[in-house]
């Protein structure tokens, strides 16, 4: 197998190298890729959409339809992990509890699990150390992380950033809680049901804005149609439409990141994990 692999790799590599002779050299400003469609986008981005970050303008407007499906791909991944891994059976092994006042860890047989009380706290089977500093630092940090994420989403028009990046940071803030405390704490903050509904809501916002444009009498995702309900001119409406879809993207990406983390780290049981 290794020999076959090596032969295939060398052959394909040689073919690829041979084909580079017709390519423009690196960084050539006159290459076809730089002068045809992309140049048009660079020239027209501000007059047509009033978004100075051309990457955002192309991503969410000129090629906004791709981005809608890109968000759908993320959604599919979240749903795929759920479908493949989620087990609705409860784990029936023994559990571990900590006596809060003394810090003693107790191993409790499966049929003698105590009712919820403030004296005992359940801990993961694969024991994680109880660390006051890590827990509190992460808890205090989480809101700032989320604030930064909102900034990244909202400032995508003027600087690198946008829905995907901001959404990932938002998701990371929840995952941080799950890692520093345990999964049950994170699930207490944002439950599985909420995550799944948010996943759908985010993409619905995106495609819903697209469908709204049809209802307002123009083509799918033609944000200029929204100028009548946003009370702005058509160019400003495009800018606002881009912001609307970025918010949708952010919500979906956040929810999917949390869902994938929860399912992967707990092998689909969503009770304890990493």
């Amino acid at each position: 197998m290794k020999a076959i692999g090596l032969i295939i790799v060398v052959l394909v590599g040689a073919l690829l190298l041979y084909s580079t002779e017709d390519f423009p050299s690196w960084g050539d400003p006159a290459s076809p890729a730089s002068v045809h469609v992309a140049a048009h986008h660079l020239k027209k981005a501000i007059p047509e959409t009033s978004v100075p970050n051309v990457v955002t303008a192309v991503l969410a407007d000129y090629r906004g339809y791709d981005t809608m499906f890109e968000t759908s791909v993320i959604f599919c991944a979240g749903l795929g992990c759920f479908v493949l891994l989620r087990l609705f059976k409860k784990r029936d092994d023994d559990s571990y509890y900590r006596h809060v006042a003394t810090g003693i860890t107790l191993h409790i047989k499966k049929d003698k699990i105590p009712d919820a009380s403030s004296e005992f706290e359940r801990i993961d089977t694969l024991w994680t150390p109880y660390d006051l500093i890590v827990k509190n630092v992460c808890r205090i940090l989480a809101p700032f992380v989320q604030l930064f994420a909102l900034y990244v989403i909202a400032h995508g028009h003027h600087s690198p950033g946008g829905g995907f990046q901001g959404g990932v940071i938002l998701g990371a803030s929840v995952i941080l809680i799950a890692i520093s405390h345990d999964m049950r704490t994170a699930l207490g903050r944002i439950s599985e049901k909420t995550v799944h509904i948010l996943m759908a809501v985010g993409v619905l916002i995106y495609s819903g804005i697209g469908a709204l444009c049809i209802l307002m009498g123009r083509n799918f995702l033609d944000y200029a149609a929204l100028s009548r309900i946003l009370f702005t001119d058509k160019i400003e409406a495009r800018s606002l439409g881009i912001f609307g879809v970025e918010v949708g993207v952010g919500i979906t990406v956040m929810a999917v990141m949390i869902s994938i983390y929860n399912n992967l780290s707990s092998e689909g049981r969503q009770d304890e994990g990493l």
Partner: peptide
């Protein structure tokens, strides 16, 4: 033909 986002063909999808 259908222009998504109302953009003419080579510039949009």
């Amino acid at each position: 033909e259908y222009r998504l986002g109302g953009w003419a063909m080579p510039w949009g999808i």
